[in-house]
């Protein structure tokens, strides 16, 4: 799992109403949700995103509601990974269930500025800021999260249990 893209930096306590406002929750379609990703932060925010880009955030990213539409909207917008100081817990579970990779890096997140090019090597647990040369080492993923990602998310996991 290796990704290179432009960092789109957002602030602290970005809530799920900012990621995908409730008025867009009348669909479960990934593409439609992606078109309105971060519309609660700024209308048209998503226009800056190119497929493969990376979301970078401060503390407690994804706080608020349990809506799984939030990680789906981020994936739908074309961003496969979010790097943050910390994540809210429901969002954390939802993201791995949906196949969105989250990397919790604490204060090290300050080494990435908006617009920097970042390279993420999830297997090595290494983030490289290609713009500045700075590197961030991520703590290893919890075993249960790695197992979920290995199986391809919660849906294949339960499917296997049921068969």
């Amino acid at each position: 799992m290796s990704y290179t893209g432009t960092a789109h930096k957002v602030g602290e306590h970005i809530d799920t109403d900012a990621i995908i406002p409730a008025r867009f929750l009348v669909t479960t379609d990934t593409k439609k949700l992606g078109e309105n990703c971060m519309a609660g932060l700024e209308e048209g925010w998503v226009k800056r995103v190119k497929p493969g880009d990376v979301m970078v955030a401060g503390r407690n990213f994804g706080c608020g509601s349990s809506r799984e539409h939030a990680p789906i909207a981020i994936l739908g917008a074309g961003m496969p990974v979010v790097i943050a100081h910390s994540f809210a817990r429901i969002f954390y579970r939802n993201s791995f269930n949906m196949g969105l990779l989250l990397l919790e890096v604490g204060d090290e997140v300050d080494k990435i500025a908006d617009g920097d090019t970042v390279e993420v090597d999830a297997a090595k647990g290494l983030i490289t800021n290609r713009t500045t040369g700075a590197t961030i080492t991520c703590p290893p993923l919890p075993a249960s999260m790695r197992e979920l990602l290995d199986k391809g998310g919660l849906v294949p996991y339960v499917k296997e249990r049921l068969s």
Binding site: S66, E68, L154
Partner: peptide
């Protein structure tokens, strides 16, 4: 699959919000 599921803690239930897929599981 609603973050305010924690309300039932007022009755002494371990009640918590999860996402839709977790609840589907």
């Amino acid at each position: 699959a609603d973050s305010h599921t924690c309300t039932y803690g007022g009755l002494g239930a371990f009640a918590t919000g999860l996402g839709s897929t977790d609840v589907a599981g």
